[in-house]
Simulated assay, not measured.
Amino acid sequence: MIRMFVNGKFCKDPKLANAEDFFYSRLNIPRNTANPVGSTVTPINVAQISRLNTFGICLVRIDYAPYGGLNHPHMHPRATEILVVLEGTLYVDFVTSNTDNCFITKVLNPGDVFVFPVGLIHFQFNIGNTKAVAFAGLNSQNPGVITIANVIFGSNPPINPDVLTKAFQLDKNIVTYLQSKFWWDNN
């Protein structure tokens, strides 16, 4: 028997495929948002549905706590994201690039859709007084996620505080304080 791997994942013989290889349930279940950022991301990618391997798509559900639930600033190095709001009111944005730093922002309500281009820093923030729920599709089976605060202030080992002090033009005590915080990963 020959085992074929694509993208580091085992590819099942198509003749042996069944419905379970293409199925996931429980995406209708709200997730706990009682955490420091007030949101939880539930990914549906090749780790949950093995047959997504090579399809170039994945999905996430994002649950936000009432006013203040945040899917913190992050970016996807390998995917564009399309977000649809099911419940609540979200304030969303992305920043274009270092050349013009154009801040693109919108308030979304149920049924609204917004696109975040590949590789651009973006976030979603619940500005409503009730919980919010959104689904996002990404055009990669493994879009990656880089959470800005986690990377900058939560690296292990830590980035030299002198570098961050100069880069962000902050007092060194502020940088040291930020590096001492526990940076919550809502994925």
Score class of each variant (00 low, 15 high):
Tyr91His: 11
His76Thr: 00
Thr33Glu: 11
Phe114Cys: 04
Val107Asp: 12
Thr54Asp: 12
Arg31Ser: 11
Ile57Ser: 07
Phe114Tyr: 06
Pro117Thr: 02
Leu90Ser: 05
Pro43Ile: 06
Thr130Asp: 14
Arg26Glu: 14
Val37Ile: 06
Pro66Asn: 07
Val46Lys: 01
Leu70Glu: 03
Val145Thr: 09
Ala134Val: 01
Arg78Glu: 10
Met75Arg: 05
Asn71Glu: 13
Asp100Tyr: 10
Leu27Asn: 11
Phe94Leu: 07
Ile49Thr: 05
Val37Met: 12
Phe94Val: 04
Ile152Asn: 08
Asn53Glu: 10
Ala79His: 00
Asp63Pro: 06
Cys102Thr: 13
Tyr91Asp: 13
Gly56Glu: 05
Ala47Asp: 15
Pro66Val: 03
His74Ala: 08
Val37Tyr: 08
Ile62Arg: 00
Asn98Arg: 08
Glu81Gly: 07
Gly119Met: 07
Ile49Leu: 09
Asp112Leu: 02
Ile29Thr: 11
Val145Asn: 08
Asn150Arg: 12
Ile104Gly: 11
Ala149Met: 08
His76Lys: 03
Ser140Pro: 05
Val145Phe: 02
Asn53Phe: 01
Ser140Lys: 01
Arg78Ser: 12
Val60Cys: 13
Met75Asn: 09
Phe55Asn: 09
Leu83Arg: 00
Ala65Met: 03
Phe123Ser: 12
Asn142Gly: 09
Asn139Ile: 04
Leu83Cys: 08
Met75Tyr: 14
Phe55His: 12
Glu87Asp: 14
Asn71Arg: 07
Thr96Tyr: 07
His122Lys: 02
Val92Met: 01
His74Ile: 05
Phe116Pro: 00
Thr105Asp: 14
Tyr67Glu: 15
Pro73Glu: 14
Glu81Ser: 04
Thr80His: 02
Tyr24His: 09
